[in-house]
């Protein structure tokens, strides 16, 4: 048992290493990939400014940083097994004597490390350029929300990755289509849950099932509005529940999809 755990931890470490080291071999990517969210953040912040609500520009900055994580989840988590399938790596993961969950976990940890660097860069540049007032009263609250958001968000990424394992072009297109509705619903640039949400409660409820929604709201409260742990307990609660549901669900789905793929012979099918 302990031996199996140790073996799987090695796989997690190895997959994390590959993801992190690959990114840092071409560090200019981090900079250029950070520019995209920055452009949209500047546009949103300018809209806030032009319309006389510039004190909310900080909301867009937090959203821009989190946008990097969502894009990462979509393109380098959810569709990762599709890329692995294209190169032949997926077959090798399947026949390796490890839990495939170790691969997903390694990908997640690596992604979080890489994207955090981008997110910090986005926050620093945007905060400086837009002259945002940061008001962190409780760093522990920021850390707690961030960690719980990552756990729930990458739980979703692992679930999507498992679901997409057998699909090629469909998954790619679905990703493309999902990205913007999630930008809208999760509140990347403005709050979509709570008193100021423009959405009816049914939409707010559905939006809160996306881990990003409570995550961004929690981060805004702790980074911009200066709230403390006691004020964001509901956020931590919701994100914990989402993590507890999504990660085991991803695990089960991965096993199910792997077996389905082995039964139907779709594990090795390329770009269909």
């Amino acid at each position: 048992m302990l031996q199996t755990l140790k073996h799987n931890l090695k796989a997690v470490y190895a997959r994390t290493y590959v993801r992190v080291i690959s990114t840092f071999r071409e560090p200019e990517w981090i900079l250029t990939e950070s520019l995209i969210p920055l452009l949209v953040v500047f546009a949103a912040a300018t809209l806030y400014r032009v319309s006389g609500s510039e004190q909310l520009a900080g909301f867009a900055v937090v959203g821009g940083a989190m946008m990097a994580f969502w894009d990462n989840v979509l393109w380098l988590m959810a569709s990762q097994f599709y890329w692995e399938k294209e190169s032949g790596n997926l077959d090798l993961y399947i026949i390796a004597p490890i839990s495939k969950m170790s691969i997903l976990l390694g990908m997640s940890v690596g992604s979080i490390i890489n994207t955090s660097v981008r997110a910090v860069l986005i926050v620093l540049i945007a905060t400086y350029v837009l002259n945002i007032r940061v008001n962190v009263a409780d760093p522990l609250a920021v850390l707690l929300v961030f960690v719980m958001t990552m756990s729930a968000l990458y739980g979703l990424g692992m679930l999507m990755s498992s679901l997409y394992m057998l699909y090629g072009r469909g998954a790619y297109n679905l990703n493309d289509i999902l990205s913007e509705p999630v930008y809208l619903l999760s509140g990347l640039y403005f709050p979509t849950i709570g008193r100021f949400s423009p959405f009816p409660w049914v939409v707010q409820f559905l939006a809160s099932l996306i881990p990003l929604t409570f995550g961004i709201d929690g981060l805004r409260r702790t980074i911009i509005l200066g709230q403390t742990v006691s004020e964001i307990l509901p956020h931590i609660g919701v994100l914990s529940i989402l993590s507890l549901v999504l990660i085991p669900l991803a695990w089960r789905t991965l096993i199910f999809m792997e077996n389905l793929g082995r039964r139907e012979g779709r594990l090795s099918l390329r770009w269909i």
């Binding site: 949103a44 809209l47 806030y48 319309s51 006389g52 609500s53 004190q55 909310l56 867009a60 297109n173 679905l174 493309d176 289509i177 913007e180 509705p181 930008y183 809208l184 619903l185 640039y189 403005f190 709050p191 100021f196 949400s197 423009p198």
Partner: peptide, 29 residues
Amino acid sequence: LQIIRPLASTLLFPLLYIVGMNFTGTPVD
């Protein structure tokens, strides 16, 4: 699906403007 995606991008910024106004208590222009 081709309608859902542009629907989201069409709504994103008008809603951002509305929320911004509501947050600051300014009437929507």
